[in-house]
Design a protein around this nucleic acid. Structure first.
Lengths: 342, 342
DNA sequence: TTGTAGGCGTTATCAT
DNA sequence: ATGATAACGCCTACAA
C-alpha cells in the first residue's frame, strides 16, 4: 500500500534546479538578498513540481528549534480542558507554532514522563495544566531547559509564569451571595486531590467566607466525592442532609464535574432543588442553567486562560526566558437568575 | 534564566564511560547480546549521572520513525472530541506512541495544512476526525505516506480504515420509538455542513424512517441551525411550532450541541417539554437526562471509538499498511426513561 | 565484545 | 550571487 520510494529531499531539489542545496536552503528561509530573480523562480517551480516539503526533523536537529509547543493537560476529559486547548491552539497557530498535547490523567508520574518526552522532541516551551505534584521538577525545567507557563493551576510561590482565574475571590463572593439570600448551612463539595491550586483556593475562599460572614469553622462541611463513583456523592448528600434536617441548606460545588454529580445525586435521592438544597458553583459547559435556570454558576473563561497562557509563553520564548516570572489573573463571572456580578 | 550549556549527547556519554558511541547506542536500543556486564553497568551509571536523554529528533532523522501518531480533530471544543482523544491517548500510550493533536476548527484548509505539518514531523500514522472535504487528499496520504484511520466520520467508499457508530440504524430506531409513542410530526434539527458523514447518515436514517413508518417526505422538516447564533434556533422552533399548532410535536436533534441549543431555545420561548415539544436525540455529556429526565438520548461510546481507531492504526503501522481497508462499527445506545435499547 | 566511519536532511560558515 | 563543507546527534554496516 505504502510506497517505499523515499521522500524528496533538498538534494534532489537542488539537482533538479541546477543549483546547490545551499541556495535551496536560502530560498526556503527567505534569504533572497543576493538571489537572482531567475534562480528564485526556477527553485519555486521545481519545489512545486516535486511537491517538496522540508523535513522539520532535520531542521530541528540542526537548529534546535522545532516550532513546536508542548501542552500538558491534567485531565483531557473535562470540558475545561478542551476549551483551554482551543485557546492555546488558536494563539499558537497564529504564531506559526505547532502544538503537541499530552494528557496525563492526573498522574504526576505521567506528567514528568511526558514533559521529558516533549523535551526529547525539542519543544520550545511548555504550557502545563499541572497535577500539582511536580513543583520542583517544573521549576528545574523552566530554569534549565525551556520556558513553562502554568495554566489555571499555579504554585504557591511564583517561580514560573502563570495564568489563572480569581478563584479565591470568586468563591468568597458567591458564598457571600448565598449568605445574603439567607443561607447559613452551606456545604462545599469537592474532588480530591487538594494539591490542585484552583480547588485549593476555592476551598480557602469558602472557608474564609464561612468564617468571616457566619463565624463558622466549616472544615467539616467540606465533602470530598469521587466523580467516578456515584455512591460517594449520594452518601455525602445524605450525610449533609441528616445533619441539617428541615433546615435551609445550600451546596457549593468546586467544579463542573462535581456539580453534575451533585445534581444527579440529588435527583436520584428524589430531593428537590431549591427546596431541599440550593445548589450553585463552578461550571463551564453551559448546561447547568439550562437544567435549573435558578442555579447561579461561576463561569470561567477557560478559552481566555488558554489564550493568555500561550501568549505569555511565546513572549517568553522570544525573550529567551529573561525576566521575572509573571502572573496574570483573569476574572470569572457569577451568573445568577437575573444579573451578573464579576 | 535558561542555561546556554548544550545538552548531553551520546558522545559525552561515550567519553565518560570510556567506550565508543556505538556501544552506547547498542545499550540504548537494548542490544545486549554481546555486551559485557561490566560495560553495561558502567554505561548505565554514566547515563544516570549525566541525566542523559537521547534526542528523539536525531533518532527520527536517522530512522524515519518518530514514535509519534498524529490526530486531526475537526472541533476540539466538543465533548465528543475530548473523550475520543482520551481513548486514543490511552491506547497510544500503552503502545509507546506519543500523540500529536491538531485542532482544525472544521476548516478543510487547516485540515490539509496540519496533516502536511504532521508529516513534516514524520508521524507514523494519523487518526483523522475529518471535516469531510478532503477525501482525495486523505486517500493519497494513506496510499503514499502513512496509514490513516478515520474516526467517527467516514467516507462514502471504504478506501481508508474507519471506525464509526451505527448512526443510520440508531436514528431510525429512535424515530421508530417516537412513532410508537404516537408522534407523527417529528422535526430533525441539525447543523451544517452535511458533508459530515455522521450527520448525513443520521439525516438519512431520519428521512427513511419518516418515509417507511409514516409515509412522509420529511425534507422540509429538517431545520438547520447555527449553534453560534441563538436566533437561528429560536426561529426554527417557532417555524416548526407554527406549522403544527396545537398538535403533538417532537424534535430529534442531530448532536449534543444542537440538543443544548434546542433546549435553551425552548426555554427562552417559554414552551414546555414535553407538552409543547417532545425532545430527544444524540448526546454525549450526561447532562441532558439530568436536565429533563424524560428525554431519551442516544449515547455514543466516543471513548471506544478512540480506542478502536488507535488500535486499528497501530495494527496498520505494524503491518506496514498491507491489506484492504477495514471498517469497524460500534453500537450506540438509546437511553430512555426506564429501559435501554441498543 | 567493541570500534570506525558514513549518512539521515538540514543550516551555517567560509570561500569564490 | 552561489557553492563546498562541516556540523547537528543518532544508528548501522562493516571491521577488528
Amino acid at each position: 500500500m505504502r510506497e517505499e520510494r523515499s521522500l524528496i529531499t533538498i538534494n534532489e531539489v537542488a539537482k533538479a534546479a541546477g543549483v546547490s542545496k545551499t541556495t535551496i536552503s536560502r530560498y526556503l528561509n527567505g534569504k533572497f538578498e543576493y538571489m537572482s530573480q531567475d534562480t528564485k523562480k526556477r527553485i519555486q517551480s521545481v519545489i512545486e513540481e516535486l511537491k517538496y516539503r522540508p523535513s522539520n526533523v532535520a531542521k530541528t536537529l540542526k537548529s534546535n528549534k522545532s516550532g513546536m509547543i508542548g501542552v500538558i493537560i491534567a485531565d483531557i476529559g473535562s470540558q475545561f480542558s478542551s476549551i483551554l486547548l482551543k485557546g492555546i491552539g488558536d494563539v499558537c497557530e497564529a504564531h506559526g507554532y505547532q502544538v503537541m498535547i499530552a494528557n496525563v490523567d492526573n498522574d504526576p508520574r505521567k506528567e514528568r514522563e511526558y514533559i521529558e518526552s516533549l523535551l526529547d522532541n525539542r519543544v520550545e516551551g511548555i504550557i502545563v495544566n499541572t497535577t500539582g505534584y511536580n513543583d520542583d521538577f517544573l521549576v528545574e525545567i523552566n530554569e534549565t531547559r525551556v520556558p513553562i507557563v502554568l495554566a489555571d493551576r499555579t504554585m504557591k510561590e511564583l517561580k514560573i509564569d502563570s495564568v489563572a482565574t480569581n478563584n479565591y475571590n470568586m468563591t468568597f463572593t458567591t458564598i457571600e451571595y448565598l449568605v445574603e439570600k439567607g443561607y447559613k448551612n452551606i456545604a462545599f463539595f469537592t474532588e480530591p486531590p487538594m494539591k490542585n491550586s484552583a480547588r485549593h483556593l476555592r476551598r480557602q475562599g469558602y472557608l474564609d467566607a464561612m468564617k468571616n460572614l457566619l463565624n463558622v469553622s466549616a472544615e467539616d462541611l467540606i465533602y470530598t466525592i469521587d466523580s467516578t463513583d456515584k455512591k460517594t456523592t449520594i452518601k455525602a448528600i445524605e450525610e449533609f442532609n441528616n445533619r441539617y434536617k428541615n433546615k435551609l441548606k445550600a451546596i457549593f460545588t468546586v467544579n463542573g464535574v462535581t456539580l453534575l454529580n451533585v445534581l444527579q445525586g440529588i435527583q436520584e435521592c428524589h430531593y428537590k432543588i431549591p427546596e431541599d438544597f440550593y445548589v450553585c458553583g463552578y461550571e463551564d459547559w453551559g448546561w447547568a442553567r439550562l437544567a435549573y435556570s435558578e442555579i447561579p454558576v461561576i463561569t470561567q473563561h477557560s478559552y481566555e486562560v488558554g489564550v493568555e497562557s500561550a501568549k505569555m509563553l511565546i513572549k517568553r520564548i522570544n525573550s529567551k526566558g529573561k525576566g521575572k516570572p509573571k502572573y496574570k489573573e483573569l476574572e470569572a463571572k457569577l451568573v445568577t437568575g437575573s444579573s451578573n456580578k464579576s
